[in-house]
Structure formats: structure tokens, C-alpha cells
């Protein structure tokens, strides 16, 4: 396997990156850690003539808490940096854990959170937990900046709503009232396995009553999806094991999984039931884990 020929640019700023993306149009591809792009190029699945490197752009490398705004995670941050960030660990251990359980250590060291999202693989591990916490994505292009709820960024398998000249610069987890959240990944091996099903849950519980709940399912639809029927079912109900089990059954009816070499659709549907129940239980009873 070898890389086909390509031209490489290393822009000094986000603006320059966007201009280059605009200039070369569909011939160009942005690259950060390279854990998706380079693998696809080697396998003849992608043949960009121009690669535009984002890895050296320091503005994309921050993780910080901005009072009144929330936790800001630059798109160029690697998964291991997300995992190890004190800011994230203090506020949302669930996000740190989701990054920790992704792929394997080598990929976590190289791959960035922006890449994981822009690549838009249905089984990606970061989108469900971030969507469940209401994260937004800041998108910059030659025509300016826009902010979208993260769940609106995905358009299908490997497709986002980003224009050719746009890149995601940061994600913001806004301050909210969630009392607990978690992401449960079910892969077919302890490490180095894609999610067969991924379920994130974020809940706001007051005196044992669920005031708000968000359930996001990964790997079971063309894009990460919210189990909205299950979410509204939970609202204002007393938390209990039976309740979580019922919500699991409802969520299981809200996904449209496919059968592939890893699992059948039928199995995935049932795993959504199991892991929705377990994720709710953890988020309600253990906080952000």
C-alpha cells in the first residue's frame, strides 16, 4: 500500500486554510491527524490532489472553560488530549471517558476531535456524548463564521453540511443543568474496535425526578441520532430501573441500523435497548461518568 501523489500545504492561519480549500475546491482535502484521510488514500478510497494540513494551527489546540459560554474544545485537539484534560475531567468525565475508549492508543495520539466529527462515520465515538450535552460546532469559511448545534452538522455517512471552504474550529459544551452523562460504547473487543452500538445519555435529575434527558445513538443510523421519543417519555418521571428499561425499548424502535460484517441490524436494535437502559442508569445514579 502506498500513498498516491499529492501536493501539501501547511497554512499559517485558519483564514489561509479556508482560502486554500476554496481555491482547490473538490480536489482538496483538509487533514489533521491523518488517521482517516491517509488510510483511505492508501486504500484507494480517496484521491485528493491537494492536502491542506491543519495540524500546526495553534488556535485549534485549546481546551478551556469560558464562564458564561462553557467548555471550549478546539477541533485540533487529539483524543488523548481530551481524555487527559483537567478542565474536561472536572466538568464532564463522560467526555474524557468517551475519548479514552475510542480506537486504540496510537490513533488517539494522532487523531483529532475535529477529524473524528468531520469524517462523519456513523460509528464515531465523540459525537453521541457531545450531542447529548448540547454541544455546538463553530464553523469558519471564507465567507465568515457560523455556529450550529453539533447534531445538525451530520448529513449522512461520511457527509457533513460543511461547505468545501469550511472547517470546524471549535466545539462548545454550553453550561447546562445536566446532573449526569455517560457514553457507552459496545465494540467487539476491549480495544481497537469500532462501536457496534454507542449510546450517550445526559440527564437532569431533581429529587429523583428526571427533568430533562437526552439520548443519542451512534452506529445505528446514517448519522448520530437522538432518541427523542425515549427522551420525552422520561420527562418528569420518577427515575427507576423499570423506567430505564422502558426507555430502552422505546429507543430501540427509533434507530435504523444496518447489517454488516460486525453485527446484524436485529442485534444492534436490541443492543440499543440494553445500552440505553444502562446509560440512563449510570447517568442518573453516578453523575458524569
Amino acid at each position: 500500500m502506498y500513498l498516491p501523489d499529492f501536493e501539501y500545504f501547511s497554512p499559517d492561519s485558519v483564514e489561509e486554510a479556508c482560502q486554500l480549500l476554496s481555491k482547490y475546491g473538490s480536489k482538496a482535502k483538509a487533514i489533521a491527524g491523518g488517521t482517516d484521510v491517509l488510510v483511505k488514500m492508501k486504500s484507494d478510497l480517496l484521491a485528493p490532489e491537494v492536502l491542506i494540513g491543519l495540524g500546526q494551527l495553534s488556535p485549534l489546540k485549546k481546551i478551556e472553560y469560558v464562564p458564561g459560554k462553557g467548555v471550549v474544545i478546539g477541533s485540533g485537539v487529539t483524543h488523548n488530549e481530551v481524555r487527559d484534560s483537567k478542565v474536561i475531567q472536572e466538568k464532564y468525565m463522560s467526555v474524557s471517558q468517551a475519548a479514552h475508549h475510542m480506537a486504540n492508543n496510537q490513533v488517539r495520539n494522532r487523531g483529532t476531535i475535529g477529524g473524528n466529527i468531520s469524517n462523519a462515520v456513523p460509528s464515531a465515538d465523540m459525537p453521541p456524548i457531545l450531542i447529548s450535552l448540547g454541544a455546538t460546532a463553530t464553523i469558519v469559511g471564507t465567507k465568515g463564521e457560523r455556529t450550529l448545534p453539533l447534531e445538525d452538522v451530520f448529513a449522512g455517512p461520511n457527509v457533513t453540511v460543511l461547505e468545501q471552504d469550511e472547517i470546524i474550529t471549535e466545539f462548545v459544551i454550553p453550561d447546562g443543568n445536566f446532573t449526569g452523562s455517560t457514553y457507552m460504547k459496545f465494540g467487539l473487543r476491549a480495544s481497537g474496535a469500532l462501536a457496534v452500538v454507542g449510546v450517550a445519555a445526559a440527564v437532569q435529575v431533581e429529587d429523583g425526578v428526571i427533568k430533562d434527558a437526552r439520548i443519542v445513538l451512534g452506529a445505528v443510523s446514517p448519522t448520530p441520532v437522538r432518541a427523542k421519543k425515549a427522551e420525552s417519555f422520561l420527562k418528569d418521571k420518577q427515575a427507576s430501573e423499570e423506567l430505564f428499561a422502558e426507555a430502552g425499548v422505546i429507543a430501540s424502535g427509533e434507530c435504523k441500523p444496518i447489517s454488516d460484517i460486525r453485527a446484524s441490524a436485529e442485534y444492534r436494535k436490541d443492543m440499543v435497548r440494553v445500552f440505553t437502559k444502562r446509560a440512563l442508569d449510570a447517568a442518573v445514579n453516578k453523575g458524569h461518568v
Binding site: N104, R189, A190, G192, A193, L194
Partner: peptide, 12 residues
Amino acid sequence: NFAEYRMPTALD
């Protein structure tokens, strides 16, 4: 490949 032909890792 070793991603989809899954042999146990040390963690397994």
C-alpha cells in the same frame, strides 16, 4: 487486516 480480523488485545 487486524482491525476487522479481531485477535485479542492485552486488555482482552
